[in-house]
Simulated scan of single mutants.
Amino acid sequence: MQLIGLSSTSRTVLEKEIQEVFERDYDKLEPGLKHVGSFIATSVGIMDSLALDDEGNPVIVEFKREGGSSYEALIQAMDYAVWCSESSSWLEKTVRTLGHTKPITENIRIIVVAAAFDERIKRAARSLEFDVQLISYAMHEDTDKTLLVPRIEIDTAGTLSTKETQPPKSKEQHLKKLSEQLANLYAKYEDALKKLPNVSVNYQPQNYIGFQYKRQNFVAVFPKREWIRLDFRLTSEEARTPGFVEMSGGWGYFHLTPSTFDQAMQITDTVYKKVAEGG
Rank of each mutant, 00 (worst) to 15 (best):
K273F: 04
I18G: 13
D54I: 13
M247V: 07
K273V: 03
I267Y: 06
N198E: 13
T101D: 14
M265L: 10
Q212E: 07
R126N: 11
K176T: 13
L33G: 05
L196M: 11
F130L: 07
D231Y: 02
F222T: 02
L185R: 07
T9Y: 09
S179M: 04
D131N: 12
I60G: 04
P58K: 03
K122M: 11
T94V: 12
L234A: 05
N57V: 02
L52E: 05
G99H: 06
D144P: 09
S8Y: 10
K169E: 00
Q181D: 14
Q263I: 14
H100P: 13
Y137E: 06
R65K: 14
F39H: 15
I110G: 02
D79R: 15
T101S: 15
S10L: 14
V199R: 01
S88D: 14
Q2V: 11
T42M: 08
L256Y: 01
E66K: 10
D269Q: 15
G37A: 15
F222D: 02
K274V: 09
T257S: 11
V201A: 00
T162V: 09
W90L: 10
E106H: 13
P31M: 12
V199A: 00
S248T: 07
M139A: 11
K34P: 14
V36C: 08
S179I: 08
T159C: 05
F254D: 09
K34Q: 15
V113I: 15
W83P: 10
W90K: 00
T162L: 09
D25Y: 12
L6R: 06
T12E: 12
K274A: 07
G67L: 10
M247P: 11
L185A: 07
I121D: 13
R120M: 12
R24Q: 14
D54R: 07
L185K: 09
Y213K: 01
F117K: 02
W251K: 04
A239S: 05
I209Q: 00
K102F: 09
Y208F: 05
L3M: 11
T42S: 13
G99S: 07
E164L: 12
I46D: 08
Y213C: 03
P167L: 04
D231S: 08
E20I: 12
G279W: 09
E238R: 00
F130I: 05
A264S: 10
D142E: 14
V132K: 04
S170E: 02
I40Q: 10
E17M: 07
F254L: 04
E62D: 02
L148F: 04
